[in-house]
């Protein structure tokens, strides 16, 4: 079920895995691993940014530029994970691998933004980062 979800999520834009003989490795291992890690790590970074750095501690990292720094950090991790996953499973590297990593970066940006919007209201210093919307105070 989870495998099917991530398989669809990535193949929606990437098409069938190439080289095709590693289709099962992508679908059963690499896509679900990458997708799950993407969600967990993005959520963790968002939580750390809003709740640890800007609530439990007062680090002064509440500006949008700081938020962007964490967004980029998450994107870098999101690029590295697929490449590592592909190599760790003995799959021949192909330009598909990098398209996949690139798509994962885009998903990481979207997800980071989404989590930020959902969770920023609980932050003390950064509840308006990156934008004030939808919170009103």
């Amino acid at each position: 079920m989870i495998q099917k979800f991530f398989w669809g999520l990535y193949e929606m834009f990437l098409g069938r895995p190439i080289p095709a003989n590693f289709t099962n490795d992508y679908r059963e291992v690499v896509f679900p691993n990458t997708g799950l890690l993407l969600i967990i790590i993005t959520l963790a970074i968002v939580l750390i940014y809003y709740y640890v750095l800007n609530r439990m501690m007062s680090t002064g990292l509440y500006k949008t530029q700081h938020w962007v720094m964490f967004l980029v950090l998450n994107a870098i991790i999101a690029f590295i994970i697929p490449v590592v996953q592909v190599n760790a499973n003995g799959i021949d590297t192909h330009s598909y691998t990098f398209m996949f990593a690139f798509l994962n970066v885009i998903y990481s940006l979207v997800l980071f933004f989404l989590f930020s919007i959902l969770l920023k209201r609980g932050s003390v210093q950064a509840w308006t980062t990156p934008v004030k919307w939808p919170n009103k105070k």
Binding site: N33, I41, V52, I81, A88
Partner: peptide, 23 residues
């Protein structure tokens, strides 16, 4: 320093999770 310790914590998390669907 906080920033770097978070880095380390993240890498640790990454390493532990890397094995969830191993080949």
């Amino acid at each position: 320093t906080k920033f770097y310790s978070i880095h380390i914590a993240l890498i640790g998390l990454l390493l532990t999770l890397a094995g969830c669907y191993t080949k």
